[in-house]
Design a protein around this nucleic acid. Structure first.
Lengths: 371, 371
DNA sequence: GTGAAAGCGCTAACAT
DNA sequence: ATGTTAGCGCTTTCAC
């Protein structure tokens, strides 16, 4: 029980100084521990501060130092565990270095993102970590970079932007996964993504998100290398709600020449795709093979367990934060920038094709859950 | 291309004022739009600001106004979709009212929570939304409340704290769910929770989290009402990593008088419990019945789909934000504080105790070829 | 309506 | 080592 609990005005250095019988400057030095302060004074000031329950006003402090000790994080969808994990990596790392994190959700909406970046800048964050909704519309990020504020891109790269970027090599893992499907006998492989684009798909179309276009490129390269016809008609974007995704899935599966395998571009999409498949009364992997990005824990619980593309999300969050903090502290870039690789985790959702055409069951299923 | 892009110092009102040939005060008024400004001046100032690419310094602004237009949110685990969704409800609502959100993760660690609250207060947030790790150790929250800063509790209540709280009636839904299990024939029902506590379980033990103690109370009440012996030996806490949870699950299932039904206190626990059950070669609901809190999308994808307790998490986030903003704006409490109710979503993971004979909950496609 | 000047709470010269 | 005096960029009296 110290003195009276509630106080109208906040306690300031001036109050502490008065109580400790020293100048405001000395009190400030002791409190902020910088400059030279004698042991005696330091003790008196700290005691007074304690007694008065003094709390520094970080705003005022930030205003003169120019540092807010805060980093801003802009993600598309905090509800998505993918970002949840990444965010955790960021905050854990930031905390370790004494930084706070301001999180802003953009709903993968470009305008919201522009806004978020502006707000964060106005709040004078020391740096920004952004998972850009678009890899093409990056004016707002260019501005950040040009203004000299530390910036790190997460998850998605932006070619026109020469800034630290923490992301996995999507083209390569996409290629590997597709080859895996092709080797399992598939030649009608669909790809569903949330990417918002007005244009309908066309080969070589410049996509707004490098992440997605890299995946598409990987898929198509695998097809070309296998000498197969590229399944351009099975690439679908704008898969935004569960209903849309289900509808797309149904279409894909009921085409005259239907998809025999589906790749979901993230866990949320995967969820709806699987529901649609179940609703259709189809079985994985007998009727359709399924592969998805994001190795969520629940993917081990389904029957069969899902074959997924795992990304070291938490570690990427950590790396992004580290890179940003390094920039903020003005240290030079690390010797080698960490390379993150996604891995194909083969479980049980990929089998051979069986659709309308020749269903060669010759190929054996993946390792099924032990009974 | 306006003038030179990068500038050493930020543009301030003074710069704008000079450019617009007015006093600093007038420029500030026009920019912050308050006070009286003539049309002519306003236009000139705005034009100049635009030209100079002026951005207000929110820190300085906050310093005089005392408002930061920011609300702080403290949650235990951002990685948990439960909080992810709630957070989304909060940010969506906050944005609508022009508030920004600072998110801090505490890892359900009490010390980290105390720290988080302090940091947020130091940053002069306008208000706080906290999902308290403990319902007992609430000194830091008491302080917040006493200091007059708006505060809203989310998810968990704190009896000793008379502040706006947004949470569901856990005792009641827990009671309902337990009765449901009892009616299905179970009398050996286990409950697993992450709650950190040093004491081993004992009836009536005062638990740190009201959420958890309410659930336990609901369970026990159902047992008493049914005239059954309360399964005190099946209540387990400190279930913190996947391995711990699996171990606990195994123990529970291999007791001389084993549990025939398990209630997982959240989705993350549920995941590991299910894995353990699968590892044991047991089948749900034939060998064990399973019920869990949180209606995550993937619970519809398992075989059988899971019977869960759904909470209106997003709506609760919205309500919490609304309540907080109301406090911040000094408006009075609403006529009736919204009551949130969890609902028992009966799917297929609950059956009878001795081998699915009481399995009246199956749906059509539920018992598909799991093997 | 407008401008001069006084802060907000703190840090940062600059003296002493 | 300590105190004095300026600011940081903005809002806010308070005169005019």
């Amino acid at each position: 029980m110290s003195t009276d609990a509630s106080r109208r005005r906040d306690v300031t250095v001036a109050d502490v100084a008065k109580a400790a019988q020293v100048s405001k400057a000395q009190a400030a030095r002791a409190l902020g521990n910088y400059g030279a302060v004698s042991e005696d004074v330091r003790e008196r000031v700290l005691a007074a501060a304690e007694e008065l329950n003094y709390r520094p006003n970080e705003l005022a402090r930030s205003m003169n130092t120019g540092k807010s000790n805060t980093i801003g994080v802009v993600v598309g969808d905090i509800e998505n565990p993918h970002f949840g994990l990444a965010t955790r990596g960021i905050t854990d790392t930031a905390k370790k270095s004494g930084f706070n994190v301001i999180l802003v959700n953009t709903d993968e909406d470009w305008a919201a993102e522009v806004d978020a970046v502006r707000v964060l800048l106005d709040k004078r964050v020391d740096g920004l970590i952004v998972a850009p909704a678009s890899s093409v519309e990056t004016r707002h990020l260019q501005d950040v970079h040009h203004s000299g504020r530390p910036l790190v891109l997460l998850d998605r790269t932006a070619r026109s932007l020469n800034v630290d970027t923490v992301a996995v090599d999507m083209e390569s893992i996409s290629h590997e996964s597709t080859r895996y499907l092709i080797e399992a006998g598939h030649s009608r492989i669909a790809f569903i993504s949330t990417l918002r684009t007005d244009d309908s798909y066309a080969t070589g179309l410049s996509l707004g998100s490098s992440q997605i276009s890299d995946r598409r490129d990987g898929i198509m390269r695998a097809f070309r290398e296998a000498g197969l016809k590229e399944p351009d008609d099975l690439v679908r974007f704008n898969a935004d709600g569960p209903e849309t995704i289900k509808k797309i899935t149904r279409e894909l599966l009921q085409l005259p020449d239907p998809a025999t395998a589906i790749i979901a571009s993230d866990g949320l999409i995967g969820l709806s795709v699987m529901e649609a498949i179940q609703d259709l009364g189809l079985t994985i992997p007998d009727d359709v093979s399924f592969l998805m990005y994001d190795d969520f824990a629940w993917t081990r619980l389904t029957r069969p367990p899902l074959t997924v593309i795992a990304q070291p999300v938490y570690e990427m969050g950590v790396a992004a934060a580290e890179a940003l903090i390094r920039q903020i502290q003005g240290r030079k870039a690390p010797a080698a920038k960490p390379e993150f690789a996604a891995t194909l985790v083969k479980r049980g959702s990929v089998g051979g094709p069986s659709g309308g055409k020749g269903s060669h069951h010759g190929r054996r299923k993946e390792n099924l859950p032990a009974t």
